[in-house]
């Protein structure tokens, strides 16, 4: 009998790991926002600020052979998955040293080594791909889980329903993780959906579903462990709705006319880092020097990442049209 792996073990080291993941993502993105204002980073920049507990809770539960499909708000997922921060930052700059050689930018982080399949910026468009990756694994009897992250806005897309149906119908090992941050860009959930209970939609497809407090990293990890355990045992899909909130604007162009400042402040007070860090301090698991150490380490890592990106190279224009098709010998 194998030891059950579906419950988090809250050792001090593990707690600090969870906290480190979240702080690392938050500080990295704060730096990105700053670099955006100085025009080092261009294009769209969608920050994960407030939602860090989801990537931090789900991704470390996975094994390296498992696969991840994410959205355009994927910096957090990439960092937690282990894409090197320096190369992620270089990608944000559009430098050749970036994880996607600079061709993708903020919205299109890819990494073959860690089975990280983007960085997909058409809402709902990643779900069929995740379903297909899982189909490939199933047909070859590979015991691999594909995790697909998407926002609640995707529930309005046909591809959401088509993919859930296919995954259930064909019994595919996909973990669908809905990051329900209440707003599809500027449209509140109750202004766009007749059924606002997203995980209830998944239940219609005979998929095991669960809704969890997405601001609670331990709750997310526990739910992710249950989900991944269930998928590995049954080979069937699982749907996890993580209820969360985006503290910052949708992208850097968003004036946030659609929500009150008070609402944002209220959610901020129950933010995933504030809450977990507060609990760790109160229960004596983490000491102030632990937090300081995490922050100073991350600060250093970010400085190195920025320096790496700054020193990176621009791909020669002569190479513009490569990688449209495979280069064959």
């Amino acid at each position: 009998m194998t030891a059950r792996d579906d419950k988090p073990k809250l050792s001090r080291a593990h707690c600090l790991d969870l906290l480190r993941h979240m702080i690392r993502v938050r500080m990295f993105e704060d730096k990105c926002a700053e670099l955006y204002t100085t025009e080092k980073i261009r294009g769209f920049l969608h920050l994960y600020d407030g939602e860090e507990a989801i990537a931090a809770g789900v991704i470390p539960v996975l094994q390296l052979r498992d696969r991840i499909v994410a959205t355009y708000r994927e910096h957090g997922h990439a960092l937690v998955r282990g894409l090197p921060m320096a190369n992620v930052m270089a990608e944000m700059y559009g430098k050749f040293e970036g994880v996607s050689a600079g061709r993708g930018g903020s919205m299109h982080l890819f990494d073959a080594e860690t089975n990280f399949y983007g960085g997909n910026a058409i809402v709902g468009g990643g779900l069929p791909m995740a379903t297909g990756l899982a189909l490939a694994d199933k047909m070859r009897a590979e015991k691999v889980v594909t995790v697909c992250f998407f926002g609640e806005g995707a529930a309005a897309e046909g591809e959401f329903h088509e993919s859930l149906n296919l995954a259930a119908l064909w019994s595919l090992p996909v973990l669908f993780v809905c990051e329900n941050n209440c707003y599809a860009m500027g449209t509140a959930l109750d202004r766009s959906e007749s059924e606002t209970d997203i995980h209830a939609k998944a239940a219609c497809y005979q998929i095991e579903t669960e809704a969890v407090d997405g601001m609670d990293v331990v709750a997310v990890e526990a739910a992710a462990r249950r989900a991944v355990h269930s998928i590995r045992e049954t080979d069937k899909p699982y749907f996890l709705e993580c209820r969360t909130y985006r503290f910052r604007a949708h992208s850097m162009f968003d004036a946030q006319l659609y929500r009150d400042k008070a609402e944002v402040e209220e959610w901020r007070s129950k933010g995933p880092i504030v809450r977990f860090q507060g609990w760790l301090a109160k229960s004596g698991i983490a000491h102030p020097e632990d937090i300081e150490k995490i922050e100073s380490d991350v600060k250093e890592e970010i400085e190195e990442a920025v320096a790496f990106a700054e020193a990176g190279s621009w791909e020669p224009v002569e190479k513009l049209t490569r990688w449209v098709y495979a280069e064959r010998a």
């Binding site: 399949y117 468009g125 069929p128 791909m129 379903t131 297909g132 990756l133 189909l135 591809e159 088509e162």
Partner: peptide, 26 residues
């Protein structure tokens, strides 16, 4: 039926699944 696979009327869904399966080695 595994290799001659009937699909629901979900063109986007199964075409996307084809893309995923192709990336996944099929």
């Amino acid at each position: 039926p595994e290799r001659i696979r009937d699909t629901p009327l979900s063109e986007s869904g199964f075409t996307g699944a084809g893309i995923g399966a192709a990336i996944g080695g099929m």
